[in-house]
Every structure is written in structure tokens, then in C-alpha cells.
């Protein structure tokens, strides 16, 4: 009787831990829309920070979900993926926002010169500050 109990308990723990391991293995990617952004900033400020001290800026912005506001200087589609360039006061650098599949469908509604707020994950600075999985933020969900 006791043996049976022990076996059931061990089996139970085994099944639960397998289930948990499976859940961890398959854990979903961050959904940018659902997560509250860590930082809200203008395109000018973020490029200033990266060009003045990249190591420090990396520490504050890398992997963070960031809301950037700015003026659209270029809109393009590359391999069915939308890319929005935000103008900055720097000669070379800008903020390059690679859109999510969902946001790419809305790119036709946008115009060059329009001001916009984009929310994405900052992966770093090459010539430009790069945001991936970006979503277009409406005035409605400005506070999320």
C-alpha cells in the first residue's frame, strides 16, 4: 500500500515537471503590444544618447521595449516587411523601426512627414538606432 502511494507521488511529480519543462521550452515571444513600455523617448534624444556614449546607452536601452516619437522620413517595404525611418537632428543617423507583420499591414495609412509614435524592442546602434517588432501606437493606447 505504501509502495503504491510513493510510486504515484513520484509519477505525479515526474508528469508535472515534464509539463513545466515543456511549457518553458515553448514559452512564447514577448508580445510588444501587450507589454507596458519601459521607456518613452523622442527620436532625437535616443540617437543623442547612443552617439555620445554607446556603452551607457546600451545599458539603458538594449532589450527594452521603447516608445519612440518622431517624424517619418522614409517608409518602405522590404521582403513584405515594413520599415519606418524616423528623422533625427543628426546628419547620418536615424531611428530605424522594423515593423511587426501586423503593423506592416497598416503602413499604407502612413505618410512621410507625419509624426508618429512607435513601440518596439531596441536591439542597439549601428549607423542608426534599431527597433524591431515595432507596433504603431494610436492615441487610444498611448498609456500602455
Amino acid at each position: 500500500m505504501n509502495k503504491k502511494k510513493i510510486i504515484t507521488i513520484i509519477l505525479g511529480i515526474g508528469i508535472i515537471s515534464l509539463f513545466i519543462a515543456y511549457q518553458i521550452y515553448n514559452k512564447p515571444h514577448v508580445n510588444v503590444l501587450d507589454v507596458k513600455s519601459d521607456i518613452i523617448i523622442t527620436a532625437d534624444k535616443i540617437i543623442d544618447d547612443f552617439s555620445s556614449d554607446e556603452t551607457k546607452a546600451n545599458r539603458s536601452y538594449l532589450d527594452k521595449i521603447i516608445k519612440v516619437s518622431g517624424t517619418i522620413s522614409e517608409l518602405k517595404l522590404e521582403k513584405q516587411k515594413g520599415i519606418i525611418t524616423l528623422k533625427t537632428n543628426h546628419d547620418f543617423g536615424s531611428v530605424l523601426c522594423h515593423l511587426s507583420d501586423q503593423a506592416t499591414q497598416k503602413i499604407n495609412l502612413l505618410k512621410v512627414g507625419q509624426t508618429i509614435i512607435l513601440k518596439g524592442i531596441c536591439t542597439g546602434f549601428l549607423m542608426d538606432v534599431i527597433l524591431i517588432k515595432s507596433e504603431i501606437v494610436n492615441k487610444k493606447n498611448l498609456n500602455t
Binding site: I24, Y25, H29, V30, L62, D63, T123, G124, I130, I132
Partner: peptide, 20 residues
């Protein structure tokens, strides 16, 4: 050529996390 390591996207979020 210059690339950002964090810009690599994986199918599984866990793999991407371990990779980084």
C-alpha cells in the same frame, strides 16, 4: 559589415534567450 546580436530572431523564445 556590422550586425547586432540581439537582432537575431529565433522560432523559440527560450532559444533566443539562451543564445543572447
Amino acid at each position: 559589415i556590422s550586425i547586432l546580436i540581439k537582432s537575431f530572431l529565433f522560432e523559440k523564445a527560450l532559444m533566443q534567450e539562451h543564445f543572447n
